[in-house]
Amino acid sequence: MEKIIDKYLDELISIELNKLPGQIVSEMSDPNQDKNEEWRIWNPIQSTVTDEEIKEFESRLGHNLPESYTKFLKHKHFYELQIGECSFCEHPARIWRASLSEMIFDGYPREFLIDTGRIPFANWSDWGLLCFDTTVENQNSDYPIVLWDHEVFDEFESKYSNFDNMIIELDKYEKENAS
């Protein structure tokens, strides 16, 4: 999984799409950039997420996160990561919990997602969210991934068997459809 994530972060940098307007956390900000530029360059860095932070977040969430997803969170910090139609929730150093909390608790109405046991973690194209489906019994919180269309609030499409499988399948699809 780490090699796939690194590949897409490296591609983002190579085509200079690692820029955002506004503030960038200092650890991720390009120190050589002109401070007067509106668009700020960010660089992915090694994650500083701790087991304690994950446990605190899981406690607030009321569910354990899949081991593969916690491995993802502990790999790299980034502002943008897209693999195909999947755009992951931003994961900046120090403030990653606020970003993820906003997507889960303050994005779309809670009663359609988290209150039904679906935990959003990524956008799908411009019309939906990928979610962990905690309503399905499984081992080690290795939840299946479902797709929620914000136009059809009460339906969830089964998409991937788990997070690891999703990363592999997204990468495979991108390789097969590269021009």
Rank of each mutant, 00 (worst) to 15 (best):
59 S>C: 14
10 D>K: 04
82 Q>V: 14
109 P>T: 05
97 R>D: 10
159 K>D: 09
10 D>A: 07
125 S>V: 12
99 S>P: 06
37 E>C: 02
105 F>P: 01
95 I>M: 14
177 N>A: 04
5 I>Q: 00
64 N>L: 12
12 L>A: 06
126 D>G: 11
160 Y>F: 13
102 E>L: 09
130 L>C: 03
106 D>M: 12
161 S>P: 00
85 E>I: 11
22 G>I: 00
165 N>R: 12
149 D>S: 10
139 Q>E: 15
75 H>Q: 07
2 E>S: 03
16 E>G: 01
150 H>C: 09
37 E>W: 01
47 S>E: 00
88 F>P: 04
12 L>V: 06
112 F>T: 11
35 K>T: 15
88 F>R: 02
128 G>S: 12
148 W>E: 03
30 D>W: 00
167 I>C: 02
177 N>Q: 06
155 E>Q: 15
99 S>L: 10
108 Y>S: 08
1 M>C: 05
32 N>Q: 13
129 L>D: 08
70 T>F: 00
74 K>H: 05
152 V>M: 09
21 P>G: 04
153 F>L: 15
109 P>H: 07
144 P>G: 07
156 F>R: 04
53 E>S: 07
125 S>W: 09
156 F>S: 09
28 M>I: 03
177 N>Y: 08
22 G>N: 02
96 W>D: 01
99 S>F: 11
59 S>I: 10
21 P>E: 09
51 D>T: 13
104 I>M: 03
131 C>H: 01
155 E>A: 14
10 D>N: 06
79 Y>H: 12
57 F>L: 06
87 S>I: 09
16 E>Y: 07
